[in-house]
Nucleic acid binder design. Structure first.
Lengths: 252, 252
DNA sequence: TTCCTTTCTATCATAATTTATCATAAATTT
DNA sequence: AAATTTATGATAAATTATGATAGAAAGGAA
């Protein structure tokens, strides 16, 4: 049914932020791309989405909500971050207690997360807001001074806060990685927070898209050997994968 | 049996959300599709379902899918709240350190607030997000478990948190007020938080639109004499104004 | 730039769905 | 039982949705 399909497309776009026509085609294999194209046109007329070359994006795009500067993209490139977020979402079990960070990938993870009963700690406002849509997820926000450019909190206070709160799983992402410098990020406070988190958590899952490899940021918060699972995308170099595996880290 | 069939169709649609004409035909093999079509037409006239090409959907289903993404609870008394928020915004001075609560009026206040250098503490996610748009305002978010229906945090932890943070001004709003029961709200945690806040702050400004008067909520957190300034709207009863003024409270 | 590839638009033919109309059957009224 | 209303089913006409295709436009690479 047309009406239903269009609704689904709109929902999908709200959730994913942007989609290429090809991706849409995978979701709706029964109809032709031409039809989907027409659906997008209709949705654009209603002001519910924005059509761009290659696909479409939701009106309130992810960049806006996560606080990243809004750049109007003219083309759609499939986001590795979503791929990673979907993988990570699949690893969350009922009843788990998890920390999730405040990054863009984490926001995608929040969107992709199953609505199962679990506890989630986060320092990201957008992540927290997103998670509030899930009925069964208990959300716990880390307080403190807000960092405006990524809508996150990170204070020296966090270690005290975590004294009485526990989570078994930390799913975090780094802004940069090299084998020599490990996982690093641009903020001292965040690095400190991550150190505490990693120590606190029984398992640390690192979400790292391949664009971060070879980059270095000022503050290292973990080494390769400190993590348990590395979640990454297709383009991740095989050699590096092997060296992670050699450290007994699951790469997926 | 027409009547009965139509009721069954309506119930079926309520349960399943949406049905194609073909599916309906399987449920009612004794009648022709034309008849079922006519039934759907009647149901639509009564406003019980919505016909779409290929079948029909329940009203609820359509509303759900075409509706807003999140808690846009139809706020009433919007104008009064904005009026109050504007008054409150005018009372904020450069360099001040303020606590703002998580309510709807507080959100308007965040929007109306001048972009001057000051410190704002809040337990509201929406308030915090809004304030992040102001360059000069330092935002400090109270952490803890999130209450999903108003996107606020309120935990037993807050008093510890406030041990080392200071603000001179608390601008809060109550869900209800009577002279006998004072200012009250619907959540114990929030009431506790407000008590701590009022004690901590040098001055307490209460934003109270006139629709709250005469209502009582389970948890009282302050009495009339505990506040310093009452910010309200035009419709606020004169008599009550006088009794506040008699307590040396500024009413505006 | 120029060429090449991809994506988009426009158009048409076809398929599916709905509406309109009429005749008949069933129920209801007189 | 006859007359009248109402419900149903069948059919054709109209509308709408879809898929295919060719040419136009846009983006990327040499």
């Amino acid at each position: 049914m047309k009406r239903e399909r269009i609704t689904q497309i709109a929902e999908l776009l709200d959730k994913r932020g942007k989609l290429s026509l090809k991706q849409l085609g995978e979701y709706f294999p029964k109809v032709s791309l031409m039809t989907l194209r027409r659906d997008l046109f209709l949705l654009e007329e209603q002001g519910r989405i924005i059509r761009v070359r290659g696909g479409a994006m939701s009106v309130k795009d992810v960049q806006k909500t996560s606080g990243e500067p809004y750049v109007k993209k003219t083309t759609i490139h499939t986001d590795e971050k979503i791929e990673i977020a979907q993988k990570a979402a699949g690893l969350i079990d009922e009843g788990a207690s998890i920390f999730i960070d405040a990054g863009t990938t984490a926001l995608y993870l929040a969107k992709e997360m199953p609505d199962i009963s679990c506890n989630v700690f986060t320092n990201g406002l957008a992540v927290a807001t997103e998670l509030c849509k899930k009925k069964n997820v208990l959300v716990n926000l880390l307080g403190g001074p807000l960092i405006k450019d990524n809508l996150s909190t990170a204070s020296s206070f966090s270690s005290i806060y975590f004294a009485d709160t526990n989570f078994e799983l930390a799913i975090i992402s780094a802004a940069a990685f090299t084998p020599e410098n490990g996982f690093s990020c641009g903020s001292q406070m965040e690095a400190d927070l991550f150190k505490v988190i990693c120590k606190k958590a029984k398992f640390t899952y690192m979400m790292l898209d391949s664009s971060k490899i070879g980059k270095i940021k000022p503050y290292t918060f973990a080494r390769a050997e400190d993590i348990n699972v590395l979640i990454t995308d297709e383009a991740f170099p095989e050699g590096l994968k092997e060296s992670f595996k050699a450290l007994n880290i699951v790469v997926m």
